[in-house]
Amino acid sequence: MSTTTATPAVLALPEAAPVKGRGYWQGVGRRLSRDPVTLFFGFVLLLMALAILFAPWIAPHDPYQTSMIRRLRPIGFQDWRYPLGTDELGRDMLTRLLYGGRLSWFLGITPVLIAFVIGGTLGVVAGFAGGWVNMLIMRTTDVFYAFPSVLLAVAISGALGPGISNAMLSLTLVFIPQIIRVAESTTTSVRNLDYVESARASGAGAFTIVRAHVLPNVLGPIFVYATSLISVSMILASGLSFLGLGTKPPEPEWGLMLNTLRTAIYSQPLIAMLPGVCIFLTSMCFNMVSDGLRSAMDVRG
């Protein structure tokens, strides 16, 4: 009986339930979850990150322990204690690759992060302020742009002298102008949109407009561009180390390992390649993930 009495109430138009819209980032997450390629490379990156993070627990040997007897053991399981062989001083390659990843990742990511903060700020200021502020910032970046980035990194690093902090400083200086450019052009395009005009028309100050309307719309694209620079940064950092301008031996670092192992290139070419393979894998993964992020964030409407 109770069901029949309830029927008229059901027939009346039901009160619509409150609707909560799906925000932009939820949409990005949904598109990413449907992109197996990006997910795969992201997963590989995660594995690598975990491996180098927990290197002291995973690594089978001491990365600094040399031995004249064990020099240049081949890759494989002839000696199960050294699955990836040993280097020219008899140190375990697997251990050194794990430890070396820490410094390589650090040198790859830190300059990009610092450049993201500094370059992003300068670029947004230039794009939003326009006029002579824009002129000053953008023409200064053009000076940096006149040099190829590798040359610039080598030149700055060479002038400052070898060392990790100097290498990072020179890499940061190389990336700042590139991020400024992207930040400036994104901000300029957002600044001219009607919703920014409308915010100005409602009497909001420049700081409020940038915080509420500009930053949420430009940070994503700038960040994606920055992630694509991580791979470049890693390769440049390795290059600096290779040239002796970054890390100093016996510190394990992929670029430096590539340098020291070049003496072994004829006797154990596979081992000499290993650090290069690591650099290549990592930078490719970062590139693929940043491409996936870009396409997931690009969709409009």
Partner: peptide
């Protein structure tokens, strides 16, 4: 173009 895509409708109207 006159609505910020990152803000909800409510937030856009309440901004001013």
């Amino acid at each position: 173009a006159s609505l910020n895509p990152r803000l909800t409708i409510e937030e856009s109207i309440a901004f001013a």
